[in-house]
């Protein structure tokens, strides 16, 4: 059982490590420029990406 969980534990440890490194290496988050909880009535964030978007559409 333990051996089987090893893969998923390593995977999630790697995900957490990458998230931690990414957070500390990224532009500091501006808490005063957070979008409202719902995009409904406000629209998506200006830099929101989506797989259906053509490269120059935003």
């Amino acid at each position: 059982m333990r051996r089987r969980w090893t893969g998923v534990l390593v995977f999630w440890a790697a995900v957490l490590a990458l998230l931690w490194a990414d957070w500390h290496g990224s532009t500091p988050h501006d808490r005063f420029a957070e979008p409202p909880p719902l995009a409904l009535g406000h629209g998506p964030a200006a830099d929101a990406g989506h797989c259906s978007l053509a490269p120059s559409s935003r």
């Binding site: 995900v15 998230l19 990414d22 957070w23 990224s26 532009t27 988050h29 998506p44 964030a45 200006a46 830099d47 929101a48 990406g49 989506h50 797989c51 490269p55 120059s56 935003r58």
Partner: peptide, 27 residues
């Protein structure tokens, strides 16, 4: 790069993945 070099993509690349909608739902 023609795609990743665009200003909007550069902004995403320099922000935390937690700020990206798709990344958060993927996680």
């Amino acid at each position: 790069n023609a795609f990743w070099g665009q200003p909007v993509q550069q902004a995403q690349l320099h922000a935390s993945v937690l700020a990206d909608n798709t990344s958060v739902t993927d996680l």
